[in-house]
Design a protein around this nucleic acid. Structure first.
Lengths: 170, 170
DNA sequence: AAGAACGTTCAATTCGAACTGAATGAATTA
DNA sequence: TAATTCATTCAGTTCGAATTGAACGTTCTT
């Protein structure tokens, strides 16, 4: 293929472009680099595996970005490396089951966070009681804050009991 | 109170500082300005309403930031304006029931997004079929992408059915 | 072993969101 | 009505995250 020598076969399909857009926007929304979502979107709509160079070229990003982004996605098990016969470079395919992705996200990010937030609430409650004992706050002032903390604690517990249910459901 | 003339009664309690920290971190995590979470945290641990000046002073942020942040929180019903007798400036208190906050967040942000994402998936599926009809993709290539889109659609529907349940539960 | 082909790293740069603060506008008081 | 007290807006700035691209190390080819 001589005609692909210079910068070649970009040519994204409409479906790919939409998916790249969607992935980018979603990631952007939740505070993940846009390029990460774009890579996922591109691979999601690619019937065959793509190399790092393919990705960088078609998205118009640097190889560095592509490398970082794919690594991120790999750690989340959102994509997989595949070896292609007769090819030296690694290729990537999506793990299209987003349910798994969500479940592992919960396990790795949400769950530990929920736990440490529970500890934090305890710490704040302690601090509050101390200020009360030191007379820095009147009885009624302390009461107000204590009530609020209890609400927070209730919500926290509900979340902790809800999320495992959701996890199984998805 | 003459001694508060210059820049005065900052003096945050330990409980307040922890809560400010927690709110700031949480917001930062989900892509909301840190200052917004800090304002919420401060008010959460304040037994009495605070004015915009109080907030700016105690958090060490500008009045502009405070104004923007409180407005944001007001639109989410996370805080309320209260009028205090003999005071000209508005004061703010938290709406400590975070359950409500979550519910309205779902209604105002998640729900419309889920809907438009559903439309988007349809659009992509259409685009894909068109590329198929134009012969730009082989039958089997098209198949792969179509399968993935179906998975996405299934997940999307599950989410749509799950979230209302969670909404009532919290 | 030399050279080429890849992937990764990291210092420098770019880019955009958040913040500031002066200016503006609205409301209140004298 | 003029002066004062607040809240809001917005143009400019700051700051941090994301991206770049050159340099490096590794693995394959000849």
């Amino acid at each position: 293929m001589l005609d692909t020598a210079t910068n070649s076969s970009a040519a994204l399909s409409a479906a790919q472009m939409e998916m790249i857009e969607a992935g980018g926007r979603l990631c952007q929304l939740i505070g993940v680099p846009r390029s990460v979502g774009q890579i996922y979107g591109l691979l999601f709509m690619s019937p065959y595996p793509l190399s790092l160079d393919d990705i960088a070229e078609r998205l118009g990003i640097s190889k560095g970005s592509g490398s970082t982004g794919t690594r991120q996605l790999l750690t989340w098990n959102a994509i997989r490396r595949v070896w292609m016969p007769g090819e030296r470079r690694d290729h990537f395919v999506v793990e299209p089951d987003l349910g798994n992705l969500i479940r592992s996200t919960y396990r790795d990010l949400l769950k530990p966070r929920l736990h440490s937030s529970s500890e934090r609430i305890e710490r704040i409650a302690d601090a509050l009681r101390n200020e009360g004992a030191d007379g820095k706050l009147s009885e009624s002032e302390l009461e107000v804050c204590a009530k609020r903390l209890e609400m927070l604690q209730r919500l926290q517990k509900k979340l902790q009991s809800l999320i495992p249910i959701a996890e199984r459901f998805l």
